[in-house]
Design a protein around this nucleic acid. Structure first.
Lengths: 241, 241
DNA sequence: TATTATTGTCTCATTGTGAGACAATAATAA
DNA sequence: TTATTATTGTCTCACAATGAGACAATAATA
């Protein structure tokens, strides 16, 4: 529901954007063996929400989402997948948006376009945690990482959206190259396994995992990585091509 | 893009529906060992399209789709899955809608709400072919079954929508109980295998298929079915519970 | 009564995965 | 220098899932 600062004419009439359509993104990052997502905190409200936005009249839906993610993370060419469309009437809670806008010093009439009902197209994104510079928008005073397993209360149905995103990510984990997008260019087998375990929420068997991944013939092996720990140094790998 | 007949005030202003949001459904049926889908043919245009519609202001998105399907098929409680949202600007072709409306005797101004850009939320539905009474809407003079492998030309990106629906159905075939929704209450193992083969577009090994399906422990076996053919009669099965 | 097509159920080989054994080694402790 | 510790890379063995085919059991027909 986060949106770009616009002039007041657009704000009131909403002419710059398609009506009734919003998008929300679950941006997954990986750090310290944990999955994290980006959340916005709206100024003076204690409300947390997923980063999102609206679609310009002359803009592709997917491009709108990329534009939103670029603003929040600074990144181009983000890995993105559609999850689901949330379109129940119960998600229409104009008082929440009103609170957010008023807490930011806007005076809002009941016909303000942001108070209308929105259907939300949701996405998940996979990004390399280290490359991101989380950036709040005009209505929020923070945009930061939260551990997936200790999220704050979220507005509207954003918890459902997070769950659906995680579910979709899990279902895709073996088709799409998940690790490639969440890890730096080079990584150890243990780090890749940590990503899979964080996503699936369960421990995997080290030997079977290694055998399976190497069997896919997708990894290139590099020199060893000396961590300074008292044990055999693991190889570094990268995804081929 | 098919829509319900409405009074002219609503037609012009589109106040009864959410703006810029449409849905389209790929309705799969199974007959003669072939997958079929329902298509509408618009009056006097030669245009073919998927059945679809728009979301009322006080209506859940999913309920809108069910309402549309009820109108086209006469069926309630249809098995339904979301596929994908098509939201590119290139799918906005107002001249096509204009042609359709004018061919139906409507006079259309350039600001007619149906000529606006629409994002389409797409679904696939699985129904029991025999139970359906395909029913055209106000703008179309037919709503009929077409073999999936010999579809006519479709308007806009509806071919992409069909492909995406088939792709999603294939991906779901082992999770969701596909056969239950496409077959009558009782069926032979061969018929169930035909459904899977039609969906996957490939031949399956009879013995492995039978072993796998029976291993799921989802089927109840009934009496034999004497087809009149010169060979051993197969058992009939139904899905448990 | 023999023939034909199809079904239900085997067996055997191959592949994929779970579970664990074990040697190799990078740093630390003695 | 040598033993200790934790972790890695690679085995082996057991078991489950699947591919491929064999074969007897039958409904109707010739």
């Amino acid at each position: 529901m986060a949106h770009k600062k616009k002039n007041e004419a657009n704000d009131i009439q909403g002419t710059g954007y398609l009506s009734n359509i919003a998008f929300d993104s679950v941006v997954f990052g990986f750090s310290g063996a944990k999955l994290k997502i980006l959340l916005m905190e709206y100024h003076n409200t204690g409300f947390f929400a997923l980063p999102g936005g609206f679609v310009k009249r002359e803009e592709n839906l997917n491009d709108a989402v990329r534009r939103g993610l670029k603003e929040r993370t600074g990144l181009d060419h983000i890995y993105l997948e559609q999850c689901y469309v949330f379109g129940d009437t119960t998600r229409h809670k104009p008082e929440i948006l009103k609170t957010i806008l008023e807490a930011n010093g806007h005076t809002v009439t009941d016909s303000h376009w942001l108070l209308d009902r929105f259907i939300s197209v949701t996405y998940y994104a996979l990004i390399n945690y280290a490359n991101v510079v989380p950036t709040p928008d005009a209505l929020s005073d923070s945009c930061t990482w939260y551990d997936l397993d200790s999220l704050p209360e979220l507005i509207l149905d954003h918890h459902d959206i997070v769950n659906k995103a995680l579910q979709t990510l899990r279902a895709n984990i073996d088709q799409k190259l998940v690790g490639m997008n969440l890890l730096p260019a080079q990584f150890t087998m243990r780090e890749l396994q940590n990503v899979y375990e964080a996503i699936l929420g369960e421990q995997l068997r080290r030997t079977s995992f290694q055998r399976k991944i190497l069997g896919l013939d997708l990894l290139k092996r590099h020199e060893k990585h000396y961590s300074g720990k008292a044990h055999k140094a693991p190889y570094l790998y990268s995804f081929k091509k």
